[in-house]
Nucleic acid binder design. Structure first.
Length: 423
RNA sequence: GUGGGUGUGGCGAAGUGGUUAACGCACCGGUUUGUGGUACCGGCAUUCGUGGGUUCGAGACCCAUCAUCCACCCCA
């Protein structure tokens, strides 16, 4: 076998691309309704952006980035996520000078060097939203409601929306200490991974899948015990507003997000049916990130949604729209003279916006009819030597099996009439 | 990075060491000259991911390698 596509990448072929187009169109529609505008940033950025933005200690930065030196010896990285880039763009383009908040969305490929598995790729696609310059709880609720609304429109069911507050850096640090104090006596009950997490990232132990870790952490102090008054009222307000927006959610004190920048509200949406990688959307507030990147202190919140995973869920739940017939009519021209006449007719029909095509292999009438049938065409426009001599076109209705003769001069008009009736 | 499964034509799938590698779908062509969706007929893998090895003999056994899938880690 010759050259193959890189591991963890996909060729999206006709038949599948339509599903992506449908999903993307629905997303854009919801974003427009919510008043979000699209932003497009580069596929690669200075490596430092992700190191600072995503966090040096995260797996993404430590082992999953596609990093390379360009010809000027600058370290560049294929974007593994987009929140850092959007914040960079916000600062660099001085969007803080525009009316606040700035409400943005993006759709595009991300790159992470991982072992592929179900729902996990090296090039994958995310839809995401970022709101910069607003710290009110309503923003958190609006963003989550946007996600909810999108899934409703897509018809997805069996969703689990988990919401939590991880607090600001101050209360998070307090929680961390309390958690370690709680766990220190049970440390030997934890799995190997969690033994290591104990020092590095004890919050993560809370959402370990290992049953013994689950048991060891029952009754552990939650973030709510340590939330400062500000974080606490913020969280309560978010929950109230979510209820008012009709979002069905669950408060999950064990929900911890993996990226360093999250503060206060964190949330995740899961669909169990799609496999081990069941999170189809994850996000939260990141009030310190813009400043971390070198901009003015600016609150922010956003999420990212894995489109491959959403599509998988839609497939499993059978919620994708049916494929429409590709062509309205097929032109069947027999012989070179007829092809000349037919080709110009074809171009006239297409100029009028009708989806019409013709045989490109010079095949027999019979074969072409068969092909037209398979395309789902409603009409066959037959033009042979005989018709040419009499200046007519055979207009055959493939559904009814009837055909009529139309003078060539009236052909476009007549066909258009049929087409408009169908549309 | 770790662990497990799989690899036969475009797709699905038989083939438990022995002469010519089933079958289904798809595809292409035909069933008298220019009329489709059905039916019938025919065509479509010098070869079983690749490279070695065992054997009189291998798609089947062994080794290596590559690819792919699933799971862990982590994330969308």
């Amino acid at each position: 076998m010759g050259i193959q596509r890189p591991k963890g990448t996909q060729d999206l072929l006709p038949g599948t691309v339509e599903q992506w187009q449908y999903l993307e169109a629905t997303i854009r529609c919801v974003c427009r309704d919510y008043g979000y505008e699209e932003i497009r940033t580069p596929m690669f950025e200075a490596t430092e952006l992700f190191q600072r933005g995503v966090g040096q200690t995260t797996d993404i930065v430590k082992k999953e980035m596609y990093t390379f030196l360009d010809k000027g010896d600058r370290s560049m990285t294929l974007r593994p996520e987009l929140t850092a880039s959007v914040c960079r763009a916000y600062v660099e383009n001085k969007l803080y000078g525009q009316p606040q908040p700035v409400k943005l969305y993006y759709i595009g490929p991300m790159f992470r060097y991982e072992r592929p598995q179900s729902g996990r790729f090296r090039q994958f696609h995310q839809f995401g939203v970022e709101v910069l310059g607003a710290d009110q709880p309503v923003v958190d609720a609006e963003v989550i409601s946007l996600v909810w609304n999108l899934y409703q429109r897509l018809g997805l069911t069996q969703l689990e929306v988990h919401v939590n507050s991880v607090g600001c850096p101050t209360c998070r640090a307090k929680h961390r200490v309390q958690l370690q104090e709680f766990l220190v006596t049970r440390r030997n009950e934890l799995c190997n991974d969690c033994q290591e997490r104990f020092e590095r990232n004890p919050l993560r132990i809370l959402d370990c899948k290992n049953p013994s870790c689950q048991a060891a952490t029952t009754g552990a102090p939650t973030t709510y015990d340590t939330l400062c008054p500000d974080c606490s009222t913020h969280f309560e307000r978010v929950l109230v507003l979510l209820g008012l927006a009709g979002v069905v959610y669950r408060v999950n004190p064990r929900l911890v997000r993996g990226l360093d920048y999250y503060t206060k509200t964190a949330f995740e949406v899961m669909v169990e049916e799609i496999g081990a990688q069941s999170a189809i959307c994850g996000g939260g507030r990141y009030d310190g990130l813009v400043e971390e990147i070198g901009g003015p202190s600016t609150p922010g919140i956003g999420f990212a949604m894995g489109l491959e995973r959403v599509l998988t869920a839609l497939q499993i739940q059978n919620k994708l729209p049916e494929e429409k017939p590709k062509q309205f009519a097929m032109l069947i021209a027999l012989g070179e003279k007829a092809q000349n006449e037919g080709f110009s007719l074809l171009s006239a029909l297409r100029a009028q916006g009708m989806p019409v095509s013709m045989d490109l292999l010079g095949r027999s009438l019979k074969t072409q009819l068969k092909a037209a049938n398979r395309q789902g065409a409603q009409f066959a426009l037959i033009l042979g030597e005989e018709e040419l001599e009499r200046n007519v076109l055979l207009l055959r209705d493939l559904m009814l099996g009837e055909q009529m003769e139309v003078p060539l001069v009236e052909a476009v008009e007549q066909i258009k009439k049929k087409y408009q009736r169908g549309v």
